[in-house]
Simulated scan of single mutants.
Amino acid sequence: MRTIAVTGATGFIASHTIALLLEAGHHVCGTVRSLARPDAHAFLTGLPGAAERLTLVEADLLAPSSFDAAVAGCDTVLHMASPYVMTVADAQRDLVDPAVQGTLNVLRACARAPSVRRVVVTSSMAAVTDEPDKSVLLTEANWNTTSSLTRNPYYFSKAEAERAAWSFVEGEKPAFDLVTINPFVVIGPSLTPQLNTSNAIIADLLSGKYPGIIDLTWGMVDVRDVALAHVRAAETPGASGRYLCAGDTVTMREVVGILRGLDVPGQRLPSLGMDNAVGSLLVRLMSYTQPGGVGSYLRSHVGRAPRYDTTKIRRDLGLSFRDIRQSIVDTVADMTRWGHVGR
């Protein structure tokens, strides 16, 4: 069994990953921002195997030597901590710096730790593209080159962080090898009561926040599949490079249809059809009245459908993806349990 460090241990994907690592018998050292409130981490320390094989330590993405203690003695490090919000007051300070400098601080700590042999970084499809083109079949060779501090700043932060990771490995030639997992929109049951950004898409549809059914097509993937991808990347000796991690594509109209069939109490699903040329034009015009990150996302995604090839992750890591429609059903059941919907 291995000793594996996981940064951002309380995160949506990270917490599921830790549960799988403990189930597999690994020893895990997870980083959190603060240990001052043990109740905030009780869902982790209460996992099966946690009492014997989970240690939590404090770490700060922007503190240069903050991760040294976490990675010491580990043979594998999963860097999963990074901010995920669409709109911020200062994109450089709130998104890019934590993503890029945090990644570099973790990699430098790993380079100083002679035991580390593999680092797996949670990247994103945001590092692959920020404006899907149905004529392009996306693979691990594609890179997002269009995002900036003002255009899809979250996407920019993920692309810059992953570029920084590969540049570090190429330039420093550390003893470890690097693997990145690039998931699309991650949904599914949560181990914590906090509503994450991806599941909020479904909660917002149910609560009436959308003016109509917009021509948006999402690539979605179940959090349990993404967690397994990280575990497989840690355990598979031949894993290498980038891995697109995405299940089915699904349109907003399809998601609304699934949600309508669930008959969630108090639901206010959109019914006005705006998934047409006129509706898309209106959405693009309305996008300029939205917060910056939301506005640029709408302008670059409305009317566009992503296409991607997940052959590599299926072949190398033996991963298969859950039916995303069932994942939507599971997500709603879980959000109902936590009180996010159905009130």
Rank of each mutant, 00 (worst) to 15 (best):
M1W: 07
R2V: 08
R2T: 15
V6E: 02
T7W: 08
T7D: 07
A9T: 09
I13P: 03
S15M: 08
A19K: 13
L21V: 03
L21E: 02
E23W: 05
E23L: 10
G25N: 05
H27Y: 05
A42L: 04
G46N: 11
A51H: 14
A63S: 14
A63Y: 01
S65G: 15
D68S: 12
D68F: 01
A70L: 06
G73K: 02
P83T: 08
Y84H: 10
T87D: 15
A91I: 02
A91W: 00
Q101K: 15
Q101Y: 01
T103M: 12
R108N: 12
A109I: 11
C110P: 07
A113W: 11
P114A: 13
S115F: 01
V119P: 09
V121G: 01
V121F: 11
M125K: 01
M125I: 12
A126F: 09
A127W: 02
D133E: 12
V136Y: 10
L137W: 00
T139F: 07
T139D: 02
E140Q: 06
N142R: 02
N144T: 03
N144L: 05
T145R: 15
T145Y: 01
S147I: 06
Y155E: 12
Y155W: 14
S157E: 02
K158F: 04
A159M: 10
A159R: 13
A159S: 13
E160S: 15
R163D: 01
R163L: 12
S167L: 05
S167A: 15
E170C: 05
K173A: 13
F176I: 04
D177M: 03
D177P: 05
L178R: 11
V179T: 04
V179S: 11
V185T: 15
V186C: 06
P193A: 09
T197C: 02
I201P: 02
L205T: 05
L206R: 07
S207M: 13
S207C: 08
I214N: 10
I214S: 09
G219E: 08
D222F: 01
V223F: 04
A229R: 03
V231T: 03
V231W: 06
A233E: 08
E235G: 01
P237T: 07
G241W: 12
T251V: 03
E254F: 00
Q267E: 14
P270R: 09
P270C: 04
S271D: 08
L272K: 13
G273S: 13
M274R: 05
D275C: 06
D275S: 11
V278C: 08
L282R: 07
Y288Q: 06
T289R: 12
P291I: 11
G292R: 14
G293W: 10
G295D: 07
S296Y: 00
S300D: 13
H301M: 12
A305P: 00
P306Y: 11
D316M: 07
L317C: 07
L319M: 15
R322F: 01
R325I: 00
W338E: 08
G342D: 04
R343K: 13
